[in-house]
């Protein structure tokens, strides 16, 4: 629910600034962001783990 607040504020910001034409781009970007979050795509630290390849 908390993230919905952020989304609402984000869209409100772009509308307030009159940058309507950036909203479709923003939508696609947010979908890509969801992909990153779901797959742990931001985790790249690896202590105590030596790479195999």
């Amino acid at each position: 629910m908390s993230r919905l607040t952020t989304l609402r504020q984000l869209v409100a910001h772009f509308l307030r600034r009159g940058r309507f034409f950036l909203l479709p781009l923003l939508l696609v970007l947010l979908l890509a962001g969801a992909l990153l979050l779901l797959t742990g795509g931001l985790s790249y630290v690896a202590p105590f783990v030596y790479t195999l390849f």
Binding site: L35, T39, G40, A46
Partner: peptide, 27 residues
């Protein structure tokens, strides 16, 4: 879990990078 996340990062990032490059051109 740690390994899953590492693998997730390795697999997702190229996909994300490709998507971003395409999006950049389209936008």
């Amino acid at each position: 879990l740690h390994r899953y996340r590492r693998a997730g990062a390795a697999l997702t990032y190229p996909l994300f990078a490709g998507l971003m490059a395409l999006l950049y051109v389209l936008a």
